[in-house]
């Protein structure tokens, strides 16, 4: 290969690499912006807005790091809406990605991993609590139903006996 040919090949490769990287970088930036907006919307209490922003993110455009935050934020939104099962699933997914990122580059996402792990524990505890409370509500309903049935039967029996 001539010197000229080498230079042309290098420039062409660089241009090709740039052409391939630029749309990806732009997409990543859009994901980053959407994630930041969703985080702010969640803090603001605008759950619907946060959900719309998160729904608008294409997974294919996101880096693993961004995917982890996407899952974390989805979990936060579901948690605020008291959709605990869904929230836990998202937190677990986020924790798994953060764990692998942390393993690959120790110290890179330590704080996010800690937060996410705590969120998983919180969601677990809330799920247990929700189940316990639902059980108590069910017991209350049963008692009321039983009491009403007993009252109706009792009044019926009393009325029947009273007529004799």
């Amino acid at each position: 290969m001539t010197r000229h040919a080498k230079v042309i090949a290098c420039v062409t490769s660089a241009l090709l690499a740039l052409a391939c990287w630029a749309p990806g970088a732009a997409a990543n930036e859009r994901v980053a912006e959407a994630l930041e907006s969703a985080r702010i919307a969640t803090r603001r209490g605008d759950v619907a807005g946060a959900e719309a922003l998160l729904d608008g993110i294409r997974l294919a455009d996101a880096t693993p790091h961004q995917r982890a935050f996407l899952e974390l934020y989805r979990g936060n939104v579901d948690f605020m809406l008291h959709q605990l099962g869904e929230a836990r699933a998202h937190f677990v997914a986020a924790r798994d990605v953060f764990t692998s990122l942390e393993a690959a580059t120790p110290g890179s996402v330590t704080h996010a991993l800690d937060v996410t792990a705590k969120n998983v524990e919180l969601a677990d505890a809330e799920l247990v609590r929700a189940e316990r409370l639902a059980g108590r509500v069910g017991t209350l309903r049963t008692w009321i139903l039983g009491l009403m049935t007993a009252a109706v039967l009792g009044v019926g029996v009393l009325a029947r006996r009273a007529r004799l």
């Binding site: 409370l133 509500v137 209350l140 009321i144 009491l147 009403m148």
Partner: peptide
């Protein structure tokens, strides 16, 4: 007996509505 000890305000609605009914019935 009806109300859980650690009940939060945001969780209270079914306990208030059903619990008060049960206590009133008796």
């Amino acid at each position: 007996a009806v109300l859980p000890d650690d009940l939060r305000l945001t969780e209270a609605f079914p306990f208030v509505s059903l619990g008060s009914l049960l206590v009133a019935l008796v």
